[in-house]
Design a protein around this nucleic acid. Structure first.
Lengths: 335, 335
DNA sequence: CTGTTAGCGCGTTCAC
DNA sequence: GTGAACGCGCTAACAG
């Protein structure tokens, strides 16, 4: 059950294998009619080019490494969907490496990727990672790298991330426009760079409102602490009329907290969130939220990498792109 | 910047390239001391075997195709995590293909996989798929296939799925043991085979209880309809003391419904669910649930496929494995 | 035990 | 325009 190769096509067409190769790759040296003839024959006998041989010859692998902390829902699956979409268009394969947010594992994965001969690396940094030393090896080995989502400021590598500052700022502006007077922001773990930026963006608006608007920041490490800390605050401040949840986790915490308190108090705060667009529809509540579109992010990140691979060796300026999504409105109500 | 090859090692060691190859692959024909010497030299000059060349020579690709409906949270990401874990142990790469639950796309992806020369196919069937005709091509082309999660009964292929019947039966037994007298089961879309089996398993216990226990089945297509239909029923039947949600979607629907009704009625049903272990902790409610451990499923599925690839051509009996997870208890409470 | 030879399937240089 | 020959890096068959 041997697969049909370029030789079979050549034999059938009465030409040399190299001629077939040239015809199939649209070389200008081949006459159009011969090209047509060869292509037809190739189709007839079901010839498919062997990518492995081709890659070996072309000194490339058509494999990229995707290094991410973990497969956590919901954002990453969307990102992966976007990456996949673009990669399949170019017949690229994937090695998926999980760092579990450990810098040491991340380093091992990078070494492995370089040694495995991948054509490029797509990486979202671990929480532990605070410098890009280990990625420099990739640069030396001449393998293109794109850092996406969880990034660190750098001029050595291409980065693509969502512009957290601007988006949080958008949320703050919306709240002010809505004439709210007592605003609470629930922040997640500030060790995460994105969270830090969102806080900065939100406060870039809020802190200017001194006097007119009362603003309080609440911090949390997880869902429970978000719910708990918010609850403590709200019980003493029933006049809160706007809440900003800056992540899906804090949003859920906020939701749980409100569920509990709504039985006792009359609450109806204006709720604004930055989310990955999955929880809002599960929460029976009106939420203005900013949809962190992972698929778009993934697609663009993969696109950046592929472009970098194609024009390898040419212009080596590091690109920095910040995506800016817009606010969407969502309302779920079965009452 | 040429990479060091087997030739460089051979030159340095004063032996023939093929000797190096044998030494590195632990051939019994090579003396231990020569092996050691060669391995040391290889390490010194930083030799890494070129997998592409090796694969070309060995007529394999070290790539498997993963064909699934979509990257939906939460189950699939866990599955993917498990698959990745095993694949990385064997230096296997991945082509991720999404069918969007369309049989036609599924067929295209299978054809593509065969032509791309993957070593094996790991597939979870689309909702539309009701026969395995298109997979027969893979069998003819001699590419191993493992069907997992969403399967169809077959003797032509290996299948691995969670034993929905048994698990739902377990849930029903727990409810009976708990002395509940009025049971409602909320089922999802019955076109999905798994849902059908869960219903059968649950009812295999429930329908025997005629007289002693009142049992009602509620059907739904999505979260909203689950919540809506359940609400309609509960409003007329406040004495319901047990609810079985047979998927994460119906569980959320159930949760939303209870949230609404709890303000008006005194409700505290015994809640049992089959879940992917993500929502229960987000719902502020006591739930007895069966954790559908995707990571284990994915790991085992990949393991089955790799084994099949290794002993290709030998025993060709189709394996059928049903995993049976156990009930876990979960309680989330910030009050 | 080890060296020699050949070839996996393709793309490319050099001839003609 | 097209054919012949070579090599990408590796391993398997055949010698010795």
């Amino acid at each position: 059950v041997r697969k049909t190769t370029i030789k079979d096509v050549a034999l059938r067409a009465g030409v040399n294998p190299s001629t077939v190769s040239r015809a199939l790759n649209d070389s200008p040296e081949i006459s159009d009619e011969l090209k047509q003839k060869i292509k037809t024959i190739a189709d007839q006998i079901g010839y498919k080019t062997n990518l492995m041989a081709k890659n070996l010859r072309l000194r490339r692998s058509s494999v990229i490494a995707l290094i991410i902390p973990e497969m956590v829902a919901y954002f990453i699956p969307s990102v992966l969907q976007g990456i996949t979409k673009l990669l399949n268009q170019h017949e690229y394969k994937l090695i998926l490496l999980l760092t579990k947010d450990l810098q040491q594992l991340e380093e091992q994965h990078i070494d492995f990727s370089i040694n495995a001969g991948v054509d490029g690396i797509l990486i979202s940094l671990s929480k532990q990672t605070n410098n890009l030393q280990h990625l420099l090896k990739a640069k030396e080995a001449n393998v293109p790298v794109v850092i996406f989502d969880r990034i660190l400021p750098t001029t050595d590598f291409d980065t693509l991330t969502i512009d957290d500052f601007i988006e949080a700022k958008d949320c703050a502006i919306k709240i002010i426009e809505n004439n709210c007077k007592h605003v609470v922001a629930v922040y997640g773990n500030e060790k995460i760079d994105n969270i830090k930026k969102r806080k900065a963006g939100f406060e870039s608006v809020m802190l200017k409102q001194t006097g007119a608007v009362k603003y309080t920041a609440i911090h949390s490490d997880d869902i429970k602490s978000a719910a708990f800390n918010l609850k403590n605050y709200l019980q003493k401040n029933i006049d809160v009329d706007a809440i900003f949840a800056n992540s899906d986790e804090t949003l859920i915490g906020t939701h749980l907290c409100l569920e509990l308190l709504e039985n006792k108090y009359k609450l109806n705060p204006f709720l604004v969130a930055i989310s990955d667009n999955k929880f809002p529809e599960y929460l029976d509540r009106k939420i203005l939220f900013l949809n962190h579109d992972g698929e778009t992010l993934g697609y663009q990140a993969a696109e950046m990498l592929i472009n970098k691979i194609f024009k390898k060796g040419q212009d080596n300026i590091s690109e920095v792109i910040d995506i800016h999504f817009k606010l969407s409105n969502y309302l779920f109500d079965i009452r």
